[in-house]
Amino acid sequence: MFVRIKLTPYFCTGKQKEARDMGVVVKQKTTHVRTAEGMMLARRVTTVKMPNGKYRYPVDYYDATPGAVHVSSSELENLRIPAYQQLI
């Protein structure tokens, strides 16, 4: 009789492995928020189904201001790596 052996998740690779560790993205919902400084932030809620059947809802934010945005001195200072030398 042919017996189908079900592989344990530890033998899977690639996308299956990613799904095992991080879950599967079911849907994403993005809402936009405008801050007092005029910056537009996108709030993204992702619904992820974990292998145990439960869901988790990680939230992340990113800047979604349309068009060219002037980078202020404080933003530059926050971004820059202090060890680097500014030649110009």
Binding site: G67, A68, H70, V71, S73, L76, L79, R80, I88
Partner: peptide
């Protein structure tokens, strides 16, 4: 990140377009 680290504001004005 690299540009903001090595290029200052003396000569250039920085602009970003994220999308």
């Amino acid at each position: 990140r690299f540009t903001s680290s090595v290029v200052g504001e003396k000569l250039f004005e920085h602009f970003r377009v994220n999308d």
